[in-house]
Design a protein around this nucleic acid. Structure first.
Lengths: 209, 209
DNA sequence: CACTATACGGAACGATAGTTCCGGTTGTCA
DNA sequence: TGACAACCGGAACTATCGTTCCGTATAGTG
């Protein structure tokens, strides 16, 4: 029920808290260690099994009790956000960088490939972008918005350069790539080449002959 | 734990049963009516909410108790199969028909559009083809196999006709289309045009210029 | 109309997963 | 070193869902 969660910052609360002294006191050494262990474990478990992985699995993998986990992250979703945000940040940074490149077309398509690659075997990210069941909350939604903005810029510039068909929206591109990654993550689709599927999408995004 | 389920046929058991007389006795009128009500309710509920919809929701919508539901379908999966199979059958039939058309290229692409259309707002089918969590069992898997076969034929013929790029597999096509449908089914993707996404995939499947 | 096999309804059960609580432990500071 | 606050662990609580059970109702039959 805390508004944010996952922010039990190592060095104190966020913006100016009422009692300054309380905010300044650093975390105890074991708490710092456990927090890191939990984050690492959650990263592996969520990436491998998706968001629906039991929280106990994360606790066990981290070698701590569930109580400890909940001390650090008041809710499962808070933990999930903390993990996914870092991954999303990388993508947003890549998108922003791509939006500034001179060769707009190539920038766009190579971002798409990088995007699909980053999604591979990272079930958590796919879930987050596909919003599997979870209310995509606050900061995650914000990040996703940033991603879309970067994409939008890239698309418009590539479009102007004649490298991409007209009228495509960031959401469509996102849906296409996230969708195919979601599919290839499933056991029944193990024979398929994700590489080729991405190729197909890229080819389809080029202007018609 | 019955091997099949959902087959409590209106007119008796399947192949020759030991006691003939028992197999001949028709279902009671109310049982027939309820069975139909349950199937209709399940169709709507699963299509709208996906396979993870609570079974109570189906019972409530059908206006029967859960006990009645379980009398007709021994397991949730059995009910699910019964619903999805009919939908899958339509697709398989369409695929088989398409595989015989003379204009191989057009046949393939128009099947793809029909396929995407059939998936729209039918969460159950998307789940089944994407196998969301469920063990895709016996007859469903068989049907999915038939679908792939039909698709395979269409692809090979379209390929020979020079209408489709080389090396594409049915699973790749399935993954692409199911994936994009899965994405567009999500609330965050409501602004997107599924039509255009399908167009992109179709364009990408054509041979490179 | 009476009788019985069949079907019905829904309370109850068991499993799973998220969250809370509290007695015991341990880091930190004087 | 002693004392206190922060922290830990995991049992227990709660909610959800699939499934079972059994007392009651009723369609079909003579």
């Amino acid at each position: 029920m805390n508004e944010a969660g996952g922010a039990t910052a190592v060095r104190g609360g966020g913006e100016a808290s009422v009692a300054d002294e309380a905010a300044v006191r650093p975390m105890r050494a074991d708490a710092v260690r456990n927090r890191r262990l939990i984050l690492e474990a959650a990263e592996e478990v969520f990436a491998a099994q998706g968001v629906s992985a039991p929280i106990d699995a994360v606790a066990e993998r981290a070698g701590v009790g569930v109580g400890t986990l909940y001390r650090h992250f008041p809710t499962k979703e808070a933990l999930f956000e903390a993990i996914v945000l870092t991954r999303l940040e990388e993508l947003v940074a890549a998108a922003a960088a791509g939006a500034e490149r001179d060769d707009a077309g190539e920038a766009f398509f190579s971002f798409l490939r990088l995007f699909a690659g980053k999604l591979s075997n990272k079930h958590d990210l796919i879930d987050a972008l596909g919003a599997e069941g979870i209310d995509i909350k606050s900061r995650c939604a914000g990040m996703a918005g940033d991603l879309e903005s970067g994409l939008e810029t890239m698309i418009r510039r590539a479009e102007a350069a004649g490298a991409v068909r007209d009228g495509i929206t960031p959401k469509e591109v996102l849906g296409l790539v996230v969708g195919l990654c979601q599919a290839t993550e499933r056991p029944e689709f193990d024979g398929v080449s994700r590489q080729r599927m991405v190729d197909v999408v890229c080819a389809g995004l080029r202007p018609p002959a």
